[in-house]
Simulated scan of single mutants.
Amino acid sequence: MKLFCLPYAGGSSTIFYHWKKNLYPKIELASIELPGRGKRSNEPLIENYDLLINDLLDFIDTNTKYGEEIQLFGHSLGGLLAYSIAKYVEKNTFSKYKIKHLYLSGTRPPNVILEDSYSISSLPNKEFISKLTELGGMDEEILNCQELIDYLLPSIRADFLVLETFNDINDDYKLKCPTTLINGINDSSVIFHEKKWENYLENIENITRFEGGHFFINEYPELICKLIINNPIHTFQKTSY
């Protein structure tokens, strides 16, 4: 079964590359590259949520077969995108493939995204980075390398523009596919709103919390992969690592 993975704001498909050895041979990793970075660096960045969703749906459609069952994993912005993709597929009766399981990692619910929609993408670099740090949206590894900051800022700005154009909250539809929430214990801005996902997800099978903050995903690749491999989980439970 394929696992399509979506990165956090400013991230590329490379953050999931080292997952392959942990998932193989049970799960085939399909790490999605967003336009304007990595293998797609020659393409223009997309700054609109709906346009980006359409681009990602095209990619998944190209890389699946009719009747195929897949899993989606997304962290932060990637989780929000994965949620919208799953919702679109589930509501589309003639969908080519089916979402078998959804993993939302470090992801705030749609209503919180709208309530906390910070229009920061047009701020000067210094203020932009400061605001990102305040929101917990900057990895320490990036902050400690000016060259890396300069390289990533355009894609991070584009991704925040994507967040600022998010509007996938206009109906009362609850996603039915089994879902796992994965969060960092110290990621307070996400943990505080964790329960609100019940308004959008009908079948939360598992809530798992790892030690660490928003970027715990970079610290526990083996354990996250183990969690995915051990799925399906048929009883609701909360666990911590």
Rank of each mutant, 00 (worst) to 15 (best):
P35D: 06
E134Q: 13
E134P: 01
L135R: 08
L104A: 10
D139Q: 13
E140C: 01
L135G: 00
Y97E: 03
K131Y: 11
L52E: 01
N42D: 15
E115H: 07
L135W: 02
S119Q: 14
R40V: 04
K65H: 10
K39E: 14
S121K: 08
I142Y: 12
L148T: 14
L80S: 14
C145D: 15
K126V: 11
P44L: 09
G136S: 03
L81Y: 06
N48V: 10
L81M: 14
N48Y: 07
L56C: 07
Y118M: 12
Y83L: 08
I32D: 01
Y17N: 12
S122Y: 03
D55T: 12
L45Q: 09
E147Y: 13
Y118D: 07
H18F: 08
N54K: 15
F59K: 15
K96W: 01
I60Y: 02
G106C: 12
L81F: 08
L148Y: 04
L132F: 02
P44G: 05
N111Y: 09
E28F: 02
Y49V: 02
E47H: 10
Q71H: 04
S117W: 00
Q146Y: 07
L123V: 11
G79P: 01
G38M: 06
S76M: 05
Y66C: 11
E90L: 05
E69S: 13
R108K: 10
L77I: 07
I32F: 02
L23I: 01
K126H: 07
E147S: 14
